[in-house]
Write a protein that binds this DNA or RNA. Structure first.
Lengths: 340, 340
DNA sequence: GTATAATAGTTAAACGCTTAACTACTATTT
DNA sequence: AAATAGTAGTTAAGCGTTTAACTATTATAC
């Protein structure tokens, strides 16, 4: 690979001149610029990024961090859309993405990840930060690497989906339809801040409707999977056969729940209303189409990346909370018999 | 950030000693090793990767390249699963992933990508290489960067899904059920080698069944999307109302086709058989569940990454072709009236 | 006609690491 | 006793950039 030195020799100037011409420093004659550029052209010179990184401290590399807390992280629709949004921004600005998926434990992210952060390899970081277990951003903060959190992690710059507003809208839709015998299918909330927020929304609306959230039938041993949605629906309906609605913490569990209740001979929404959260592709295709919350995940990625570039630009961007959108489809309807 | 020099000073040895102890070079006393390690510990030393890269030429960075040929690349299930497989391998070996999504045009991938390749930033590359338009790997080959292609691109080291075998199995399933009036929903094959292979398989089986593939009703202006599947099914059935089966080049188009024919008052599979290719999540959930081909995409990623690490190890791995699996579900059945 | 400013380019240090080449001492072989 | 091999560590060059500090020339001001 040609180096600056070779270009300089060919152009008959010094190394520094080549470097400066390439970075558009003023005070060079057109003649010199031309000589340099044609030498660059002829040799096909491209800068060695490692050398540039070492010398300038800038790598043009953005770390995109998705903590690996469960299997199949890249099949998580949230992750997909966020990645999509970040990629678009980075590509437009000539930055590359370093994808990191640290394993998390109670004493923090794994060694490989910590090494990466300290390595001076990353100009900035966008991290999904929703796990109370441990933050992937605190090491970055310590090193003063510009970083944006997506989620509820404790970080000055963040982008969040408004889970409280989303779950509130979802639950209001359910209570508004007249449901009072409501089951909740969810996961252990200690795993996820955003799940905690969703629970909070459900709780508040339930209380407003005169229901005691704590005493609502609940299955909270789900793991986001379709299978766990099936298990949860089976468990709940066995114990409480008068439920008229199941509120699920995500779409996959809702789709599992629908399949399960159909298997049990119930019709959705005629016999029972089922709603989810996320608005994944399958939810629109499924029959009945699922009533759910669209959290506009691509926007999360976009805004996070924009915020990061603002930080790199020494600006002072405001954190963002992105509102969600209720998608009412076929899986929700008023209860057959109101038990108001 | 602490450097080798600071560690060396603290440990009372030379920089070289620290470097060598850390890389497990032989010939040091336990005493020296201990002194070095405790200094490293105390200072929290972590190597500067840029410096290491410049000096040694090794970055521990693997480029994962997905050419951006259509919107929503990360929502492509193939991409997701491949990424998942690669990530698992890389993480296990302490390598990081640099995700690159070059824009492709007839005169090759974009400048940003070429710069990346030449930058000495990547120890190796795994690239999705299925686009005849231009190869993302030829620049890598020129620079002698170890690389593995996933797909049919012209590259010595590759991992492929056996599209020929898959499409053959799919078409044999259809003809075996007795279908003869078969419509094809597909995309422009000049865009994708793997699509060409799938067409070839359909062609061969059609001929064996005494059908002339070229004259089979065809809609080839699809773009993989659900919407284009709907359009295609509508167009085809309007012109040929006696079709008993629709073979779709991917699942999303198949799901669109099913929705369209249902909207037209037809039942699947009673009135018409519809099959897809990919086995995405929605295909199992959809009602009727879709008969399709599982190309075992996670395996593609796994094998590709393993092959790359073998190359980095100076081994001489064999290229791999991964067989697919036919998943017979509810959307296919014998034709109502055989027109044999 | 100087002093000052603007223009045009060079020199050389620095970034933090790896590693070949070297020194120095001890143990073993012949 | 000399030669060889093994052990333990150091010195210093080199990787390819960036950039502060410097030199040299030309234009402008007073």
């Amino acid at each position: 690979m040609p180096t600056l030195a070779e270009v300089a020799e060919k152009a008959g100037v010094s190394i520094a001149t080549v470097s400066k011409v390439l970075s558009n420093t003023p005070y060079f004659t057109e003649e010199t610029r031309r000589k340099v550029m044609s030498a660059v052209e002829e040799l096909g010179y491209l800068p060695n990024l490692a050398a540039r990184a070492l010398s300038s401290g800038k790598t043009h590399l953005i770390g995109v961090v998705f903590p690996y807390v469960y299997e199949g992280i890249f099949t998580d629709p949230l992750v997909q859309y966020i990645l999509e949004g970040i990629e678009a921004e980075c590509n437009a600005r000539g930055y590359n993405i370093l994808l990191s998926t640290p394993r998390l434990s109670a004493d923090g992210p794994d060694e490989n990840y910590r090494r990466l952060l300290q390595s001076s390899y990353l100009d900035g970081i966008v991290a999904l930060d929703n796990v109370p277990l441990s933050s992937v951003l605190s090491p970055a903060l310590r090193k003063n690497t510009p970083a944006v959190a997506i989620g509820y992690g404790d970080h000055p710059n963040y982008v969040r989906s408004d889970d409280l507003q989303g779950s509130t809208a979802l639950m209001e839709h359910i209570t508004g339809l007249g449901h009072r015998r409501i089951g909740i299918l969810t996961v252990d909330e200690s795993l996820h801040y955003s799940i905690q927020m969703r629970h909070l929304g459900l709780d508040q609306v339930a209380e407003e409707a005169g229901l005691n959230y704590v005493h609502l039938p609940k299955y909270d041993r789900g793991d986001f999977s379709i299978a766990s949605g099936m298990r949860g629906a089976a468990a709940l309906l066995e114990q409480y056969d008068d439920l008229t609605a199941l509120v699920c913490i995500n779409d996959r569990m809702a789709l599992g729940a629908i399949q399960q209740v159909q298997k049990m001979g119930l019709k959705v929404p005629d016999d029972i209303t089922i709603v989810g959260y996320d608005d994944i592709l399958s939810s629109q295709l499924f029959s009945p189409a699922l009533t759910t919350i669209d959290q506009r995940a691509p926007e999360l990625g976009h805004q996070a990346a924009q915020m990061l570039f603002a930080l790199l630009n020494n600006e002072n961007p405001d954190s963002v909370v992105i509102p969600t959108q209720l998608r009412v489809r076929e899986s929700s309807a008023p209860p057959k018999v109101s038990r108001q």
